[in-house]
């Protein structure tokens, strides 16, 4: 399912003295099956964009197309339930939203709300649990008796059980330890590939953006300031640094090294392996010359 934002503007508390412009003239194309990372500071408007992706917010101006559905600014839009079913959002610290008595009830809450039968919903709960790497024995437990990492996974399973076509992830690994982080990110990537999902990742981690994304969008002060593949984005690292954003560790290291050595490598390298090869080459070439 394709999503397209065209010249989207959003104002919080419109027509009140507290009106504030959150995003302005934002155009982003999200074709089916893409993995897109949205990067920006706190307050850059990325969360506002994220909430437009399943019509939790509706544009003040511009158009949001979600599959067949078109949501135009300044109009009343109905029948958004179908849209929300197809676009699942995993919010930051999703475990804070757990509320049911048992894990099973919590996971099937979403699907039941969207009119899925109880039998089907329970079936989906089992599949979703497996996808997030948890066993069925936990179904009858209270979600509040689980560890933090398990709670996070149960909350994610609740979103997966809705079988969305598009998965929107808002800092999904915040607070997890390195192993948990890698497991969760790899799990989303596997789902992305297996189910041909579109995945939109909102993140601070340049490492994750460089590793997983096909496309990166950079937001600043409510606007899209840059779009491109990870190679394109990170090949202009100084620009990012000027915007107050980080670059991946590997890129940062390359820049430091280039400065110290007073030389430039042919291109920006995004993995440790590539960079170490390029530098080793350069060093051995130095011997010959």
């Amino acid at each position: 399912m394709d999503i397209s934002l065209q010249h989207v503007e959003y104002r919080y508390q419109a027509n009140t003295p507290f009106e504030s412009l959150a995003i302005e003239d934002v155009s982003i194309e999200i074709p089916t099956g893409i993995y897109m990372a949205i990067i920006g500071h706190t307050g850059s408007g990325k969360s506002t964009v994220l909430q437009h992706l399943n019509a939790l917010l509706q544009p003040s101006k511009g158009t949001v197309k979600i599959g067949e559905h078109e949501i135009k600014g300044g109009q009343k839009n109905k029948n958004l339930k179908k849209v929300r079913q197809r676009v699942g959002i995993v919010f930051q610290f999703p475990e804070h939203q757990l509320f049911e008595e048992t894990v099973e009830k919590d996971i099937i809450f979403g699907p039941l709300n969207f009119g899925v039968s109880e039998i089907e919903a329970k079936k989906r709960a089992r599949i979703a649990l497996k996808q997030v790497g948890l066993g069925e024995e936990i179904l009858e437990k209270s979600p509040f008796d689980l560890s933090g990492g398990q709670m996070r996974r149960v909350a994610i399973a609740g979103v997966l059980a809705m079988e969305p076509d598009v998965l929107v992830l808002d800092e999904p690994t915040a607070g997890l330890d390195p192993r948990g982080r890698k497991e969760v990110m790899d799990m989303f990537y596997a789902l992305h590939k297996d189910r041909n999902l579109s995945t939109i990742l909102v993140t601070h981690s340049m490492e994750d953006a460089a590793r997983y994304a096909d496309q990166i969008v950079i937001m600043q002060q409510g606007k899209v300031v840059k779009k491109g593949t990870p190679e394109e984005i990170f090949s202009a690292p100084t620009e990012l640094v000027q915007m107050g954003l980080d670059v991946p560790e590997v890129v940062r290291f390359q820049l430091k090294l280039e400065e110290k050595m007073g030389m430039k490598l042919e291109k920006i390298h995004l993995t440790i392996d590539e960079l170490s090869s390029a530098v080793t080459d350069q060093l051995s070439r130095g011997v010959r010359s």
């Binding site: 330890d177 192993r179 080793t280």
Partner: peptide
């Protein structure tokens, strides 16, 4: 460290890659 669920700092990973390439 990785087996313990932790990670290795970037500079250690980088040093390791250089060593493997003969530096």
């Amino acid at each position: 460290l990785i087996q313990l669920g932790l990670d290795i700092p970037f500079s250690v990973k980088m040093s390791k890659a250089f060593r493997q390439k003969g530096i």
